[in-house]
Simulated assay, not measured.
Amino acid sequence: MGRLLLNLRHVPDDEADDVREMLEAHDIDYYETPPNRWGITVGGIWVRDRERMAEAKALMAEYQARRREQALAEREERRRAGELDTVGSFLRRQPLRVLAAIGATAFIVYLMLLPFFSLAGD
Rank of each mutant, 00 (worst) to 15 (best):
L59Y: 05
G44I: 05
R66V: 04
R48P: 00
L59M: 10
A65L: 10
R50N: 12
I45S: 05
G43N: 09
R20E: 10
N36T: 12
P12E: 14
D27V: 02
M60K: 03
A61H: 10
Y31A: 12
V11R: 09
A54W: 03
D49N: 15
E55Q: 12
V11D: 01
T41V: 08
Y63P: 00
W46H: 13
P35S: 09
A56W: 06
P12N: 08
L23W: 03
R20T: 08
A61E: 13
E21V: 02
R37Y: 10
E51M: 03
I45D: 07
A25Y: 05
A58K: 10
M22H: 05
Q70C: 03
E21I: 06
V47N: 05
R48S: 15
E32F: 01
R52T: 07
K57M: 11
E15V: 14
R50T: 11
G44C: 06
D17P: 00
R68M: 10
D14I: 13
E21N: 10
E62R: 13
R48Q: 11
R68T: 13
E55L: 08
Y30H: 14
Y31P: 02
Y30T: 04
E51W: 03
A16W: 07
G43P: 09
T41L: 02
T41K: 10
A54L: 09
W46I: 11
Q64H: 08
E21P: 00
V11F: 00
V47A: 08
R48Y: 11
A54S: 14
R50Y: 09
A56F: 07
D27W: 02
D14V: 12
D27I: 02
D14G: 09
K57A: 01
A56H: 08
T41G: 11
I28F: 09
R66L: 12
D18L: 13
K57P: 01
M53L: 15
A58L: 09
E15Q: 12
A16P: 04
D13I: 04
A61Y: 00
D49Q: 14
D17W: 02
E62D: 13
D13F: 03
Y30L: 05
D29L: 11
A58Y: 01
D13H: 04
A61L: 01
Q70T: 13
A56Y: 08
R50H: 14
V42I: 01
R68Q: 13
A56L: 04
E55V: 08
N36Q: 11
G39C: 07
W46Q: 07
Y63R: 12
I45H: 04
E69W: 02
V42C: 08
E15C: 02
V47Y: 02
R37K: 15
A25L: 08
I28N: 03
R50W: 03
I45K: 02
R20A: 08
A65C: 01
Y30C: 07
R66K: 15
D14R: 14
A54G: 11
R67T: 11
M60Y: 15
R68E: 14
T33P: 01
M53I: 04
D49C: 10
E32Y: 05
W38Q: 06
R52G: 00
W46A: 06
A25E: 09
V42L: 12
E24G: 13
I28K: 05
R68P: 00
M53W: 05
R50E: 12
L59E: 07
A16T: 04
G39S: 08
E15P: 00
T33F: 06
